[in-house]
Amino acid sequence: MRLLVLGGGGFLGYHAVAEAVAAGHDVTVLSRSGTAPVDGVEVLTGDRQGDLSALRGREWDGVFDTFNDTAPGAPAIRTTARLLSGAVGGYAYVSGMSVYAPGGPAVPDEDAPVREDGVEPATDRLQERSLAKLAGEAAVTEEFDGVALFPRVGIMVGPRSTRFTYWPLRLAAARDGRLPRRVLVPGDPARPVQFSDARDIARWSTAMLAAGRGGTFNTVGPGRSESLAEVLDACLLAVGATADDVELVVVPHEKLLRGQLIDVDEEDRPLWYPEDQICQDAVDSGRAAAAGLVFRPTVETASATWRWAEDAGSTEAADFVEREQGILRAWRR
C-alpha cells in the first residue's frame, strides 16, 4: 500500500508511520518540519491549515489523519478531504469515544447517540473537543468520495505518551529506593479500566486501509476486563518488582474529589482511574475486535513504555511525588 500520513511526528501518527513501514508499505509523511519521523519514508513539507500544494497531483491508496480541527465545521479537515478525493482510496480519520452523549448508555456501541451542540453544560470539558471530532467525521463523509474509516479512540498509552509512564516509573523508583515505597492507588483497585496501546490502533488502522475497509469503530481495549489492580501488577512485572517492594495505599476516589486533594487538571496529572471526564462505565469495541483489532498484554505495553521513558530521561514520577505524598499524609490524618 502507498500510505499518506498527515503528521507523523507526534504520538499516534508516529506509530502509524512505524507500523506501516514495518508491514512493508510505502509511506509518505506531510509535516510542517519536513523531517522524517522514521527512516525509509518520503517527506513532504506542508501545513494542514495552510499550504497543501505538495499533495496536489499525487495518488495514494490510503491516508491516515489525526488532526484535531477545533474550528467550526472542521475546515482544515474538509479542505484536505476535498483535495484528496479521487486521489486516495481510503481515508482514516481518528475520532474519539468522547463523542457519545453523556446521557446515553453506560456502555455505548457505535450506534449510541452522540453529543449535540447546545445540549451539554458549558462546564463539560469534553463538549468542544467532541463536537470537533464529530465535525471532522462529517467533513470526511461529505467531501471524500472513497472509503472512510473512523476509529473512535479512548485513552491511548504506550511509548511516546507521557500519562501512563507514571506507573512503571513510579514503581521502579519505589523498588530501587529512589522514591518513597508508599505509592498512592487512587480509587477502587477492583474497578475495571479500559485503555488502548496506540501501536495496536495504528497497526489495525493501517491494515484496514490496506484492505480497503471502512466504517466507524470503537477502538478502546476491546475484550479487556482488567482491573486497576491487574494493571499495577503488570507494571510491577514489567519493571522487575514485586508487591513486597512497594506499599500500595488505596485512597477512595470520592475522598480525593470531595476533599479537594487533587486540584490538578486531569490532562496534567498521571493516568489515574477512574478518570473524571469519562462519562461511560466502559466502551463496547466488539465491532473492531470482529474486524481484527487485537491488543497486546498490558505487561508488554508497560515494559515498552518504561524503557522509552527511561531512555527519554522522564522525570514524571519524581515531579508528582511531592503531591502524591502530601495526599497520603492528608489521607492518613
Rank of each mutant, 00 (worst) to 15 (best):
V94G: 06
V94M: 11
V94K: 14
V94D: 02
V94E: 04
S95G: 07
G96K: 04
G96L: 02
M97I: 12
M97N: 14
S98H: 10
S98P: 10
Y100G: 09
A101Q: 05
A101K: 06
A101C: 12
P102S: 10
G103Y: 11
G104P: 10
G104D: 06
P105C: 10
A106R: 13
A106V: 05
V107T: 12
P108I: 04
D109P: 10
D109H: 14
D109Q: 10
D111I: 03
D111A: 15
A112F: 08
P113R: 13
P113Q: 08
V114H: 12
V114P: 07
E116M: 07
E116G: 13
E116T: 14
D117F: 09
D117K: 15
G118C: 05
V119R: 15
E120H: 11
E120L: 15
P121R: 13
P121G: 11
P121N: 12
A122R: 13
A122H: 07
A122T: 08
A122M: 08
D124M: 12
R125T: 09
R125P: 04
L126I: 01
L126V: 03
L126Q: 13
Q127M: 09
E128P: 06
L131Y: 06
A132Q: 06
K133S: 04
L134S: 07
G136K: 05
G136T: 02
G136V: 09
E137L: 02
E137V: 00
A138D: 11
A139C: 09
A139S: 06
V140M: 06
T141L: 15
E143D: 10
F144E: 02
F144V: 04
F144D: 00
F144T: 05
D145T: 15
D145A: 15
D145V: 04
G146F: 03
V147W: 05
V147N: 05
V147R: 08
L149M: 08
L149C: 08
F150T: 07
F150S: 07
R152N: 03
R152H: 03
V153S: 13
V153A: 14
V153R: 00
G154N: 06
I155Q: 07
I155M: 13
M156F: 02
M156A: 09
V157Q: 13
G158T: 07
P159Y: 03
P159C: 05
T162V: 11
T162K: 06
R163I: 05
R163A: 10
R163M: 09
R163T: 10
F164W: 10
F164R: 14
F164Y: 11
W167M: 04
W167Y: 11
W167F: 07
L169P: 00
L171G: 02
A173E: 05
A174R: 01
A174G: 15
A174P: 00
R175W: 00
D176A: 15
P180Y: 01
R182M: 05
V183K: 04
L184T: 02
L184Q: 06
V185W: 07
V185S: 14
P186D: 09
G187Q: 08
G187S: 12
G187I: 02
D188W: 02
D188R: 11
P189T: 06
P189F: 10
A190T: 14
P192N: 05
P192F: 05
Q194C: 00
F195K: 00
S196E: 01
